[in-house]
Nucleic acid binder design. Sequence first.
DNA 1: CTGAAAGCGCTAACAA
DNA 2: TTGTTAGCGCTTTCAG
Lengths: 358, 358
Amino acid sequence: MTDGLDDETPALTRTGGAAVRTARRVSMADVARVAGVSAQTVSRVSNGHPGVVEATRTRVLAAMAELGYRPNRLARALVGGDLRTVTALTSDTAPYRAAETLRGLVASARDTGYSLWLSFLDEETTTEETDFTALLPHPGAPVVVIAHDEATVAAARALRRIQPVSTVAAGGRGLVGVPDGADWVLGFDERADAAEATRFLLGLGHETVHHLANPLRIHRMAGWASALLDANRPVPPAVGCASTVQSGREAADPLVRDPEVTALLCDSDEVALGVLRAAREAGRDVPGSLSIVAFDDSPIADCLIPALTTVALDYRGLGRGAFELLRQRLGGDAAPDAPVWKAPRLIVRETTGPPPRR
Amino acid sequence: MTDGLDDETPALTRTGGAAVRTARRVSMADVARVAGVSAQTVSRVSNGHPGVVEATRTRVLAAMAELGYRPNRLARALVGGDLRTVTALTSDTAPYRAAETLRGLVASARDTGYSLWLSFLDEETTTEETDFTALLPHPGAPVVVIAHDEATVAAARALRRIQPVSTVAAGGRGLVGVPDGADWVLGFDERADAAEATRFLLGLGHETVHHLANPLRIHRMAGWASALLDANRPVPPAVGCASTVQSGREAADPLVRDPEVTALLCDSDEVALGVLRAAREAGRDVPGSLSIVAFDDSPIADCLIPALTTVALDYRGLGRGAFELLRQRLGGDAAPDAPVWKAPRLIVRETTGPPPRR
DNA sequence: CTGAAAGCGCTAACAA
DNA sequence: TTGTTAGCGCTTTCAG
């Protein structure tokens, strides 16, 4: 190696087929040599340890800059240090909620110099008998599980057993099987949100409100039921569905054929889309003969016809919050006590109105 | 907190705040001791190296199983070995395409024992002056860029310069700025797909077809234009838009107000949803006065009202293909020459019909 | 066919 | 305040 400056990949390309190895990284030793200090001092500077006199510090920093030094996170992690990586564990990133939560997670991770390792729960592999260690970059790696279905909730629990401190289930609060109030769980106040939406529908004059619910979200159900009870209304059986368009369509089918059903609370915008289709096929006019309120306020809500009345939920903020909580539990910083996400907000659009006249 | 029942966290929790270290992993040395061989032999077995007599092999394997040994990938990578990790680089996982591609990637990665590192391009950080090394787990890490917009395309190009072998742009072929025919790029035959969709619309009797296009997808535009030209039809200016619902709605606005526009080819289902809304606001009936064909066949296509005529594209397969290609380029296996994804397919639903009578 | 030695890049512990 | 010694878990030489 002669000059500096080159970094990139000069002659290397021709290495011939297999795993081209990059031009020997600049290591701490290199920096140390240039700065005329020991590797240890470079380490201290690199990690912002106290007790390095300003003069040397500057010298080391200069050498780092000159050489384009970047610490090798693998080596750092190997000695028990921090890989500076969060593992996001989930079963699907396609649903709006999951995608947004992930985005929030990634954003704050990056802001703090963390990288994101993404692990998917295998759909086939059953129950808790998953090999979680295989899902992690290394044992003990901090993970945030983005919990929104049975598989992810089970995973959150199982992980707790293996890794006491480092797991946080974003969106988990209010899910069956996730201990409520656990300090490693983060989620919206689903009970209040559902109650509010239900009251809104009641206020429009509906006799009662039906619920197309994700069976996992017990707090939503509780909020819905109690709002009904408080108003002395009958509580119809909740109808279970997954949080997908198709599932919504199928689950809604019997409901929309029942003229008694005039107001419907849906688990998500995706579900509501399916409901809209089912209603149309059953000849139900929305909102003329059927009102719909959903949750999420994803980008589709605004453009559907009719546009969806829905509760806007800040999943991105939730993702950010999950990361903060994780760092905090890892002993990083003090608790970030400012509220992390925007308050939920019922956005009234076109799918809601008074019940049909009898 | 007193009770039992709460399972989890045995004695470990009390370690006191910071990074609880898990109960010392079992290492190669441990296995070696139990098997009565040297660590080196364990390594050989672990990596399937030849030249280990069957008897020892079995013994080592038994010891591994007994101890629950898992190789430490960080240590392995540190010595120049393979981290067994793919980095997916993209700007957003929310769009259906990106989400599905990612899924495919993750699926085949897992099947081969790889993990996935997810890196997001920073929206703010401009141009190619991004610090790509910072986006990678370690220098030289193999990455698949899921390219679908300017930022990702730029990233794909920039990465090439740094890492000759290991990048593959899924979905990149046919994007401006990605060298066509490059053997590190994988994508659908967008030209043919767009031409087919255009011909379909022409066949319905439309005088011409307008195009709400992602300006990056030149091959789509080429296919569309040439289908028009082949049929001796006028080629109207393509209207640019991003691949989002809102962008579709805005971009479609002038188009749907123009009665001359009777057929519209849209960049994605998301865009088409926005178009549907714009059409509705302009009082255009779909498909009565305006026909729409989109691309993707995402879950929403089927449930929109009217249901979307769209070209189904197998992004999941694309993701799988990208991973295979990557492995192959890394010198892994032979080329997987079986086609990796399902052929595109025009699914005719409810947004298409003959043009309005004049 | 198997083992021993050396070292990847880093940090904890101790010494100076 | 700084340097030295060790060693994380693994793989690559090179010997036996």
